[in-house]
Structures are given as C-alpha cells and as structure tokens.
Design a protein around this nucleic acid. Structure first.
Lengths: 155, 155
DNA sequence: AATTAATAGTTGTTTTTGTAACTAACAAGG
DNA sequence: CCTTGTTAGTTACAAAAACAACTATTAATT
C-alpha cells in the first residue's frame, strides 16, 4: 500500500482537467440544451458565427478544432432550426458560407449573456489575477494563441 | 460588430476547460486504448481500484462522480478481461467488492507510470508554483477536496 | 409479518459520437 | 483536355454514451 502514494489520481492533470471541465460545463450545458435544444457542437458553431460573423465550415473547424463531420451535423441542425443560413461560394462552389439568421443572432446574444454571467460566477471563486493565470495556462494547454491585446482582427 | 467584443469564446472558462482537457487527454487516452483496449471509464475505475484498493462500485461512483451505469459497464469489461475480480458482500448481498487481479495491478502500474511521466511533461510547460496553483484551482472547480498534506487516510 | 420504500447494480433502448467511405468541385501536370 | 490529386462537405455504419426501466436485496413503517 505504501508504494508511491505521492501521486494520486486527483493530481493527474488530464483527470483534473476533465473533471473540472465537466463540472464547470454542467449548468451552462443545461441552459442551451433546455432552452434551444442545442448540443455542445451546435452551441460552439453558433458562438463562432456570432463572434466572427460569416464564415465557412472549414474556417470554424480550424478555429475551434472541431472535426468537419461534427460541424457538418451541427450546421445541419442549426439550419433546420433556422438559426443559420447557408450560401454557396460562387468562386468555389464546394465551399459554403454560413451566417446567423436573426433568430440565430438572438439565440447567440442570449447565450452569450448567459455565458458571460456564468463565467463571472466561476471566476468569482478566485482572485482576479489567479483567474487570469488560469485562462493563460488553459489557452496554452489547448494550443490557443494569446489574444493580441486590443484589436480583434477580421478575416 | 462593435457590441461587446471584449468577451470571446476563447475566454469562456467552460470552453477553455473543455478544449484544454481534450488536448491534454489525447495522448494518454491513445495509450490506454491501444495498449489495453480500455475506455476512459474503464481506465478511471482501474485507477481508483489501484489507488484505493478494494472498494464497491458505489464507492467508486462517489469518489469519481461517475454514474453507476457507466461503472457497471466498465467493471463488466474489466472483469471480462480479468483485470478486476468481484465478490459479493455477505452482509449486504446487493453490494459487490471489486479488486484488481494481478493482471489488473500490472496494468495499473504501467498506466500509472505513464500517467506520471505524461503529467510531468504537461507540468514542465509552466513554473512549478503555477502548476500547483492550477491543480488547486482545478480541484476547486471539480469540487475535489484538497488532499490532507501527509497521511492519505484508509477507508 | 406484510407492505412500502430505498439501495446496489444491471440491462434495454434511444441519442450521440467517431471513423471511414463517399460525392462534388476544383487544381495541376502531362 | 484528361488523368491524378486535393479539398469542402455529407453520409453510412459501427462504437459509445445517456437515460430510463428493471431485478435483487435490504431497510423502514405499520
């Protein structure tokens, strides 16, 4: 029993990250699921379109690291519910430009507000500079580049 | 476009946590999957039994916050592969005591070593005190109580 | 004791996911 | 052009997860 008790399951970063992610997502997940019948990937796609405006499935995939299959299905659902409209690119007729409909925008705004307040709630459990460090570390672990301080570049 | 661009998807803690968790788990996940054909829940059950010794499905569920259904199926697989043995509690014949077999112990030791080195690899990307803070914050987010400094209490 | 409730664990059924194969459109080399 | 290769996106099938209903056993209530 006294082999190597200094490293337990609960120190293991992937385990901790998964557990924390599950717990932290629970309430918000319930919100977009109950309110809009959305799955995680649908919410993510919606959010990307809300933040970045019109873009293709490919671009969303690159930004969010979501596989094209998932995006395809998420977009299909969102389009079915009239949250997203699609239009073929006339230069390259393989590509499809995706864009939120007014209903999609409304859902985005609602979910975004919810996300912000939920995020604030989580953050409030720690010191501000601790939270800043946490975000920075998580970004690094997720290979997300640091946001350039002010201007968010358009694409 | 200039509504509220100060809060992006990539600042949202649940999103960041999920992304970081996915990325951080990837390599390790591949390891136990390829090497032992294990799923995430199977690995978690194995690890709990390895760390805490004999326990019931119920107890694992409480510690790991895994639903009994998942544990039941994970245990079934592990038992099938002779990593876990089961024995009825004679006082309460509903309960089943689970325990690693020698093969299970061997797998546990291998995976644990792998976990430790993988954890170290992740941790090496940051300052030690940053990592300590990260673990503390993740534990708090996951509602895992801090380990009491020295003696890990037996059950 | 007999009835009802609660608990440990399992099983069945429906959703979701993951992987890979597919279609359609474009691009490049000969 | 015409074969070969790439890319955007979809679809089909198999694996896995979620949720609810179920069995067996124990506990509680009358």
């Amino acid at each position: 029993m006294t082999e190597k008790d200094d490293f337990s399951l609960q120190d293991f970063l992937p385990f901790l990250l998964n557990r924390a992610a599950e717990d932290a997502s629970l309430a918000f997940q319930a919100h977009y699921k109950n309110r809009y019948g959305m799955l995680r990937n649908e919410w993510r796609v919606l959010f990307h379109l809300g933040v970045f405006g019109q873009m293709t499935a490919k671009e969303i995939g690159l930004r969010a690291k979501i596989h094209k299959t998932k995006i395809s299905r998420a977009v299909a659902k969102l389009a079915e519910r009239r949250f997203v409209s699609r239009s073929r690119d006339e230069k390259d007729r393989r590509a499809e430009h995706l864009q939120l409909t007014p209903a999609g925008e409304a859902a985005y705004r609602d979910l975004r507000a919810e996300a912000e307040s939920y995020d604030a709630q989580l953050a409030a459990r720690f010191d501000p500079q601790e939270v800043a460090l946490l975000r920075r570390m998580l970004r690094k672990l997720a290979s997300i580049e640091e946001p350039v301080s002010s201007a968010p570049e358009r694409d």
